[in-house]
Design a protein around this nucleic acid. Sequence first.
DNA 1: GTCCAGGATTCAG
DNA 2: CTGAATCATGGA
Length: 308
Amino acid sequence: MASADWTSWRPLRLAEDVPAGTLAEQLDGGQAFRWSRDADGAWIGVFNRTLAALRPGPEGLEWRGRSGATGTESALRHYLDADGAQARLSESLPWRSDEVLRSARAAYPGLRILRQDPHEALIGFLCSSNKRILQIRVMVAALAAKLGEPLGGGFHALPSWQAVAAADEAVLRACSLGYRAAYLRGTAKKLLARPRWADEFAALETPALLDELQALPGVGPKVAACVALFGFGRLESFPVDTWVVQALAKAYGLHGWKPAQLEQFGKAHFGEAAGLAQQYLFSAARQGELRPAAITLPSRPAHPKSRR
DNA sequence: GTCCAGGATTCAG
DNA sequence: CTGAATCATGGA
């Protein structure tokens, strides 16, 4: 097994502590698909062209990077929202009056939205439709290994759109993508002509950003919401997947509501950091830690105005 | 074998 | 516009 040449472990001071369980949920809970545990239980991951390792230590989070690499710590600090912007947003959520959110938030203290690169978020969630998180990780890992630039030590960056567009059909099929292979190829061909797409998209207001994303093959409302949230830092974005549908039905009594209606509810109820609230609920629901609560909520579905 | 997965697309009505 | 069928793959 190839290995990388690591620096020594060093403390990573964040604005708020991240317990081991929260760290695991954050790195391997369906936001990013590029982290895995090594034999010692430390997390190893690649984001952009940074290879890094993280582990909970006795006095807080610890990190190490490739020896000789520069910028790993600052990259990690950005990735993990070290300055605490989301800590303030989390505090502003209505957890005081909403006991469902309060218990979900307490189950994962310090849980944050990872500040991923748009390219990484788009590739990950293009693979995500109708797939379990573990399988998405396998698909993305295969894409990186077969088509991504080697970073040494057996690690790879994610493939460029050029690499995806030029890839053999057989190579893509070997990544277990299924029908998602066409999504990746189609999106790759469209974005190939727009090398600055991430910057152009980042300059848009969120509604326009969602429209641009949904114009890409394989990107519907849910994937667009995820890419906006995880890749473009739009914390107000509220992705509604099967887990969130179940969570909102069970905990808030919103049975029979359609995804678009639940999205409207989430944005209205949770506000500017709805996406962060969504992640608390998603994580709690997936771990079976979500319990229904008797809180006062509307009994009638909202009528989302159709965009476009 | 059946069911489901951080859904999207296409088509019928 | 809404709802249903279909899509490819692997694990429970």
